Lab assay of single mutants.
Amino acid sequence: MDVFMKGLSKAKEGVVAAAEKTKQGVAEAAGKTKEGVLYVGSKTKEGVVHGVATVAEKTKEQVTNVGGAVVTGVTAVAQKTVEGAGSIAAATGFVKKDQLGKNEEGAPQEGILEDMPVDPDNEAYEMPSEEGYQDYEPEA
């Protein structure tokens, strides 16, 4: 019985440690998101679009440190934060509304985080759909 109880105690310690790591990862992701939003706020009209992409990228980098179902929630929060940063930029006159959601080359930025393969159960990952990809044929 002692062996059984000791095993359960060790398992509990492992769960607590994993929860603490997840909590730490979420806190880091939130900190990076805040950094990115402050970065966007300090940019001029020309830099705002690039700044919004930076927020998304920093958040995406930190999301990889967070495991399990938390990833889905962090990704949703990050996307809403990026959308909010863009709205703030438009409201303050840093950028025109028609410039939001495009990178410096004018290509749409939507789907940055949505296409990231995420499995809350950590069982399997699927690649994003290939609808947006084109076949590449090298020139002879």
Rank of each mutant, 00 (worst) to 15 (best):
M1L: 03
M1W: 00
D2G: 01
V3Y: 06
F4A: 02
M5N: 04
S9I: 11
S9R: 14
A11H: 01
A11P: 00
A11Y: 15
V15Q: 00
V15R: 00
V15M: 15
A17C: 09
A19N: 01
K21D: 01
T22Q: 00
K23R: 08
V26L: 09
E28G: 09
E28T: 07
E28A: 10
A29P: 00
A30R: 05
K34V: 12
K34A: 10
K34N: 03
E35D: 01
E35F: 09
E35V: 07
G36P: 04
L38Q: 03
L38E: 03
L38I: 05
G41V: 05
S42C: 09
S42Q: 07
T44I: 04
T44S: 10
T44R: 02
G47M: 12
V48I: 14
V49Q: 14
H50K: 05
V55C: 06
V55M: 15
V55W: 11
V55D: 01
A56F: 15
E57G: 10
E57H: 05
T59N: 02
K60C: 07
K60R: 12
E61L: 03
E61W: 02
Q62N: 04
V63T: 04
T64M: 14
T64E: 05
T64P: 05
N65A: 03
N65Q: 05
N65L: 12
V66N: 02
G67E: 02
G67A: 08
G68N: 15
A69C: 03
V70R: 01
V70W: 03
V70D: 04
T72C: 06
T72W: 03
T72V: 14
G73T: 15
V74E: 02
V74Y: 03
V74Q: 02
T75I: 13
A76Q: 09
A76W: 02
A76V: 11
V77W: 15
A78Y: 09
Q79P: 02
Q79V: 03
T81P: 01
V82C: 12
V82N: 05
E83M: 11
E83C: 01
G84F: 07
G84D: 07
G84M: 10
G84V: 05
G86E: 15
G86V: 02
S87A: 13
I88D: 04
A89W: 14
T92L: 09
T92Q: 10
G93R: 08
G93F: 08
G93H: 10
G93P: 08
G93M: 06
F94D: 05
V95Y: 08
K96Q: 11
K97C: 13
Q99W: 07
Q99K: 06
L100I: 09
L100A: 08
K102W: 14
N103K: 01
E104L: 09
E104S: 05
E104M: 04
E105Y: 08
A107Q: 13
P108H: 05
Q109M: 06
E110W: 13
E110H: 05
M116W: 09
M116A: 15
P117Q: 12
V118N: 06
D119L: 03
D119R: 13
P120Q: 06
D121M: 06
N122D: 11
N122T: 02
E123W: 01
E123Y: 05
Y125R: 03
E126A: 04
E126V: 03
M127T: 12
M127E: 13
M127C: 02
M127V: 15
P128K: 07
P128V: 04
S129F: 14
S129A: 09
S129M: 10
E130P: 11
E130L: 04
E131N: 11
G132E: 07
Y133N: 13
Q134F: 03
Q134P: 08
P138F: 11
A140E: 11
A140I: 06
